[in-house]
Design a protein around this nucleic acid. Structure first.
Lengths: 345, 345
DNA sequence: GACGCAATATGGAACGGTCTAAATTTGTCC
DNA sequence: GGACAAATTTAGACCGTTCCATATTGCGTC
């Protein structure tokens, strides 16, 4: 006995049963059509599809998620939304997942943490079939816990080192080497590096060292501990540029830090690139801003996203696998912030 | 009869029934404890909580979502992840929602569209209780459809004009007026405006006009149609700056376009701010980059996020309400890109 | 025309919670 | 000490799908 609707309440979403009734078939058949299973006659399929359209039926994800084991849903843990780096990765990842019939579910770990929300846990409860971690994250424990239940892939970070978690990163050592070599080739000999955190930071530092040593230069003299922020890049550069013997080039951990270096240079009245060359890393759209025009190492974000999606799809097929590490080549994007050192230096 | 586990398969997540059995109570009681309902004796509650901890029980969101009408989940439709504008809004929004016991579910409309995924629809199927649209979006139809079923709030956009959808924006006209007035106060008389799209663009243009007319200046002379991208800001500025009579100040639709203006100025050998003043809008972290140091209108993103969260929470309480529009005050953030016009101009 | 097999279609039991109504326990008052 | 009300606890229906086991149908054969 239907009650009179109070106000403008919508009369409840149609369910699979409504569709079945309308089409004059069983709900099982409707279900089969929805999942476009084989063994359904074209005639019936037609009728059902029509009923679906007429009723405006939309499947209920919860119900589906409850009875199926899988949800075809992949959690994507984003970290610093302020770092534009992840956008390309996300785009490629989304496309790749979509091609495998998977839907990404986004979570912003940084913001969530600030409000005390456990993003990974929430996603797990929601029944994600897999997890992609994009960028450095602090939630090691949660990720480890997740990895025991579902496939996990790390994109652009190497850090929670876990036995059965795939890693997709760019070749940080090679990228750093190339950036440093570029400066060396320009004629620089006083080359500084603003190092960054984590294993990624170590690798970039290693690449820098390698190139310097190969060129017979001292890699230690101008290495400063930087960070991931503009602020820290600024501070570190300031320290470097106020020394009596100062570098003619700075290779920063990432674009943001490099931008801090640009500011520090401006403060000291140094012109980029004639007085000081600056190289960043990540090739974010920041580096492409004409006014900054930052030479930067492109870490192949798009390729990273694609491969991360592939790894995940593969793991969903065959869960038990050893850890795999995929290195995406890094390429240097030369822009206006690098040039030969000032004469006489 | 439990089968021997093939491989390292986890033995199925414990359910509410397992907890009940372990605690020696009914599953209903467990459910009550989970929702910390009143009328549960402390003794029982204790026992249940213990069992939950011992078993490592995690509630299944699908099952819950299926039987409850509400999901306490709010869809957040983000648009251009490349525009850092939305980050602050998201942060405030997340915090506010969280305080009301609601969880945000993120979707990236831009990326989703590129891969042909219907973000709003997906969220609806997932059972969101409400939707917040952050920033301009193209999915008008989908939003309209959503608004017929659940509360919808627009943050930072006015565009799908719908009868029962709340809007939270900054006072664009006032902000534009203030920015323009700042330039007038500095002594500029040749002031250009790079206008932007949508109603927001119209309002900022209107504010600009108002201030100009009040000051007895011609608002039309240097108004160019810009856009939301660096590219379009660059192009429009270039057109302006290559005229024989050129402006001494540019007020751009947003920070990104303003950065394009900076580049155009550099191309023409104009120094900012001594030859040309530039003002942006949005006060994104880009404007704060020392190297850019862009004077910009702060549109109170945080406040926008907070109010959007409130509106939504209110609508969840009392669904039938007329549309409300909340204006957040805009404040000018003066930085290094504005100064008095060159003497003799 | 009956028979057997494949191709289709259907009933009904899960899935893991919530929630209502009813049962049970506890407590209070005379 | 018993009646009655209040406070707890519980049984069991139900939410909308999936999917397994069982019908039912359609056809080619003999």
């Amino acid at each position: 006995m239907p009650e009179p609707d109070a106000g403008a309440r919508s009369p409840r979403q149609p369910t699979i049963r409504d569709v079945a009734e309308r089409a004059g078939v069983s709900k099982s058949l409707v279900s089969l059509v929805l999942r476009d299973a084989p063994h359904v006659s074209d005639a019936r399929r037609m009728v059902v599809l029509e009923a679906i359209a007429e009723l405006g039926y939309k499947p209920n994800a919860h119900a589906r998620g409850l009875s199926r084991t899988k949800s075809d849903t992949i959690g994507v843990l984003l970290n610093d939304l302020r770092n534009p780096w992840f956008v390309d990765v996300l785009e490629a990842l989304t496309a790749t997942l979509h091609a495998s019939g998977l839907s990404p579910v986004l979570a912003d770990s940084y913001t969530d943490q600030r409000v005390g929300r456990r993003s990974v846990e929430a996603m797990l409860q929601q029944g994600i079939d897999g997890l992609v971690v994009v960028g450095t994250t602090p939630e090691f424990d949660a990720i480890q816990a997740a990895a025991e239940v579902i496939p996990v892939v790390l994109a652009g970070t190497r850090d929670p080192k876990l036995p059965n978690v795939d890693i997709v990163v760019n070749d940080d050592a090679a990228g750093a080497r190339e950036a440093t070599q570029h400066l060396i080739d320009l004629g620089h000999t006083y080359i500084a590096h603003l190092s960054g955190p984590g294993e990624i930071g170590q690798l970039r530092l290693a690449g820098f060292r390698e190139a310097m040593i190969d060129a017979g230069l001292d890699p230690e003299e101008f290495t400063e501990t930087g960070g991931m922020s503009e602020e820290s890049g600024y501070a570190a550069s300031r320290r470097l540029l106020t020394r009596k013997k100062r570098p003619t080039a700075i290779f920063a951990f990432n674009d943001i830090a490099a931008i801090g270096a640009l500011s520090a240079a401006a403060d000291q009245g140094l012109h980029v690139p004639s007085d000081l060359s600056v190289v960043g890393y990540d090739n974010t759209y920041l580096s492409r801003i004409r006014h900054l025009s930052l030479t930067s190492v492109d870490n192949g974000n798009f390729a990273i996203g694609v491969q991360a999606g592939r790894f995940l799809a593969e793991r969903l097929e065959a869960p038990v696998q050893l850890q795999r590490i995929h290195l995406v080549p890094a390429t240097l994007e030369v822009r206006g912030s690098t040039a030969a050192p000032p004469a006489g230096k």
